[in-house]
Design a binder for these strands. Structure first.
Length: 264
DNA sequence: ATGCCTTCTGCAAGAAGA
């Protein structure tokens, strides 16, 4: 089974590229982040015509996640147990569409869009850490219930775990994506049993390059998209790769697909 | 050539991303 995660930065703008990728990449399950649309605005038809089932979470033009599968799509959940809400000043807290899970081909796949955080002094930064902590607690609880559970937490984590995951650590030092708080929160997910499985197969590759300032031609990128798998599922990984070519050309997302192949 | 930011809403310019 081929499992791919991709922050597409608007599914409506990117639909032709995403369908093209699906058709040439032999992908079975695609986890999408930043769909940037309401559920009723999502372009279901092109996926269904290509032979895939679709599950979507989306409230407005912000965030939004989806799962696309040709190996079954059951038990859809549009948030995980304990997923934190974010409250804007003087507003009711909202559980944002940043997680969607479903059973696909026997695997519980979660498409995750971890909050960016904006800056380390912004309330969104604390939200980012609480989101990661809640995800770890959810994963820990799932493994306590069933140590052999096949669970995939894949998506845009908005954290650069290593100094080499940003194009110049001095530019980022002590700032968003590389703080000790973010890195230890993500390390805790691995410590709970959900190891990141793509880095060992593709050690030196970014997953994101900013649109501005020739970041892609200069290869000034960031590695912030990952696949964290439960122990039983991680054992099935045969290869992993990052499709850097998807960043080329007009009309690309600023992120590229992160691909894992699982043995049957 | 891999190329100088892009998306959303809504009609102007602001919000948001990373």
């Amino acid at each position: 089974m081929r499992l791919v995660t991709w922050n597409v930065n608007s599914i409506r703008t990117r639909i032709d590229r995403v369908i093209g990728f699906l058709e040439r990449s032999d992908t079975d399950v695609l986890a999408i982040q930043e769909t940037k649309c309401k559920v009723e605005q999502f372009p279901y038809a092109p996926f269904e015509e290509a032979g895939y089932e679709v599950a979507v979470a989306g409230l407005n033009q912000w965030n939004g996640v989806a799962l696309i599968s040709r190996v079954g799509l059951e038990n859809v959940r549009t948030s995980f147990d304990g997923q934190p809400a974010f409250a804007k000043p003087d507003k009711e807290p909202v559980v944002e569409p940043r997680a969607i899970g479903a059973t696909c081909g026997g695997v519980d796949v979660w498409s995750l869009y971890i909050p960016n955080g904006r800056s380390i002094t912004d309330p969104h930064y604390a939200y980012k850490l609480s989101f990661l902590n809640a995800l770890t607690e959810y994963g820990r609880s799932r493994l306590a219930d069933d140590p052999a559970a096949q669970i995939a937490f894949v998506g845009d984590y908005n954290v650069a775990p290593l100094d080499t995951d940003v194009w110049d650590i001095e530019v980022f030092r002590d700032n968003l994506y590389v703080t000790e708080g973010e890195r230890s929160a993500l390390a805790a997910l691995a410590d709970a049993g959900f190891a990141e499985v793509t880095r060992s197969h593709e050690p030196d590759q970014y997953t994101f390059w900013d649109y501005q300032q020739l970041r892609f031609p200069k290869n000034q990128g960031m590695r912030i998209d990952f696949q964290h798998l439960s122990p039983a599922l991680a054992e099935r990984v045969s290869t992993a790769s990052i499709d850097r070519d998807e960043r080329k050309g007009k009309g690309s997302s600023d992120h590229v697909p992160v691909i894992v192949d699982l043995l049957d």
